[in-house]
Write a protein that binds this DNA or RNA. Structure first.
Length: 288
DNA sequence: AAGAATATCAACCGCACGTGC
DNA sequence: CGCACGTGCGGTTGATATTCT
């Protein structure tokens, strides 16, 4: 299929006729195949432009109008936790697109927060580089400590509502390694294993029902490098050697914060998105 | 009323990533 | 393994609307 010359594309606002053509085509053929869509639908636009127009404007679930106070508060909170990851933030706001959220942030909230002198630096820089934060490695060391870094396993979760929860948890655990102190372990070994569990982490696991052994204490260690480099490749082993733990929490502390534990997979994660967004959890986060 | 300055937001661009061959 | 292609993302641009002087 010969490419459409660039100069032949409209580069202005979409006309009602174009919107109608695009909507009708997607209704009868479904979403996808954006590259071939313009030719098939009779549009002088690029496929990417069609996709953008559909998802940002024509999609039936798009919510128009100004942002509510609740939405505003949620954006501010999520931006503090996730940084400029607009698509992730938008997924928590039904009917809002990443473009909407980004524009609203840049035109309203950014200034608003700057005015209050209340801005906190974005916790994460752009993370779409090849060596981004989503690595999954479980290191078991000396029979006492499990360093937990979730990531790839989370990224590969089946799409579902809870995915956003675990992705957010992934951000949390990228910033901080969580050590699980096993009190009664005597056998010593030093091994590194790839975390290849096929079990979904979307389902919260009850600590009490799943594990009968003594509750553990958890030590949280900050991953300093992760904020200093654009394309940081996180290595739990490096952190083990180079950083001291910053905080230790009892089993009950974390239970009260709504942080769940899946010891089978060496995971800690907030029980729900509301947990993650709760004041207590935010205070906990900022106290580290 | 008119021009300048500023705000808004739809649209575009380049890059990264996933997938299939 | 490497390439091509499709898709999705975040940053940026620029046309239009609104406010200010």
């Amino acid at each position: 299929m010969a490419p459409i010359p660039r100069h032949s594309f409209n580069r202005k606002i979409w006309s009602p006729e174009e919107d109608s053509l695009l909507t009708e085509y997607i209704r009868s053929h479904g979403e996808g195949h954006w590259t071939s869509l313009p030719l098939n639908a009779g549009l002088k636009r690029r496929g990417k432009s069609c996709r953008l127009r559909w998802f940002n404007y024509l999609h039936p679930n798009i919510k128009r109008g100004s942002f509510s106070g609740d939405e505003e508060e949620l954006i501010i909170r999520l931006h503090r936790l996730l940084g400029n990851r607009w698509s992730l933030i938008a997924k928590r706001l039904p009917g809002r697109t990443d473009n909407d959220v980004k524009n609203y942030w840049n035109t309203h909230l950014c200034k608003q927060l700057r005015g209050k002198n209340n801005t906190s630096p974005s916790p994460f820089k752009k993370t779409r580089s090849k060596n981004c934060c989503w690595n999954s490695t479980v290191t078991e060391k000396a029979g006492k400590t499990n360093v937990v870094d979730i990531g790839e396993s989370i990224k590969k979760c089946e799409p579902c509502e809870n995915k956003t929860i675990t992705e957010t948890a992934g951000c949390f655990l990228h910033k901080y390694s969580v050590f699980c102190e096993e009190k009664n372990e005597e056998e010593s070994y030093h091994d590194t294993v790839q975390h290849n569990s096929k079990q979904s982490h979307d389902e919260p696991v009850s600590i009490c029902s799943e594990h009968e052994e003594e509750p553990h204490d958890y030590t949280v260690q900050q991953n300093l490098e992760s904020h200093e480099e654009e394309s940081h490749h996180y290595s739990p082993q490096q952190n083990l050697q180079s950083h001291e733990p910053v905080s230790t929490f009892s089993y009950n502390d974390l239970l009260q914060l709504g942080i769940n534990s899946d010891m089978n997979n060496n995971l800690l994660y907030p029980y729900s998105i509301s947990t993650f967004l709760s004041s207590d959890f935010c205070d906990f986060w900022e106290s580290l």
